[in-house]
Amino acid sequence: MRSVGIIANPGSGKDIRRLIACGSVFDNNEKANILKRVFLALDSFGIEKVVIMPDIYGIGYHALEDLDVHLSTVFLDMAVEGIQDDSTRAAQIMADMDVACIITLGGDGTNRVVAKSCGDTPLLPISTGTNNVFPLMIEGTIAGMAAGAVAALSLKGEDIAIRKPRLEIYDDTTLIDVALVDVVVSDHCFAGCRANCDETSVYEIYLTNSEPGHIGFSAVGAALTVADADRGRGMHISVGGGNERVLAPIAPGMMRWIPIRSYQILEPHKSLPIKFAPSFLSLDGEREIDIGKDEKISILLNEAGPYVVDIQKALLMARDYVNRLDKLSDLT
């Protein structure tokens, strides 16, 4: 039986979108509560070991407080700095340990930094962030059941998960970062409060797909008219000028008309250079990379991004697994 990894981001759900976009503060005690429910479900599946990323708030510790479970928990032996890189390093270690899957608690930003290093380890992302396109609005108990099935049955990504695409950011030929949902090029010159909800600042938007139901600048893609066959594909949109405009939710409660100059389907593995410099790249909603005048930054869509557990499929397998377990216990 394989173990389950847990990465809970104490920083998610607290940024400036609470002021400008009616976001809600996601309290860390609530994250600990969600994790409690994950643990209880995992425990009922007989999962023996859970590997947890330590964090500055101690979400994992709080979740285990007064919790009556049999599974053993291991906190990764790593320095916690309270920065994004904590999650990236934790995901790397968990992938090396060959955990069955990694449950993440956070928003798009959290999953982005986990996906940088998790390799083929499937993710089970629980949404506790603000703009949530990638993670799932899923009850902790259900997530625990799904993860329990993946671990108990030692399922591989290709059997139980869906492969998601990612956008890769290259400095010349070096991969420097990734995004799971969108890359937005804007005229900001500082990361500041990171969240980017200023439509007047945007030059370009790169999307991994244009499915409806997105929030953030990636929602612009869904608002554009494209053929059904193109819906699941990546897209590159130039903002400003032009004759077309679309209404899109660029942050919680922020419906904005976005002027569109042009757009095109983003073909995988075709590198597109960023033409605007100096400028700022927002990755999955957060300003991350400042581009100096002479830097050669390009974007490439790669279909081989992280695996995300197919919840429905995993729950059906969970049902069969529990039935089998129940029969076994009848015999003994």
Binding site: D15, V25, N28
Partner: peptide, 23 residues
Amino acid sequence: PLKDMASLAAGYGMPAVVVDGQD
């Protein structure tokens, strides 16, 4: 018993945000 004091404000329905004070 908590680290982010923003949660306290949120309890009153007061919008609250956490930022990097070194930035």
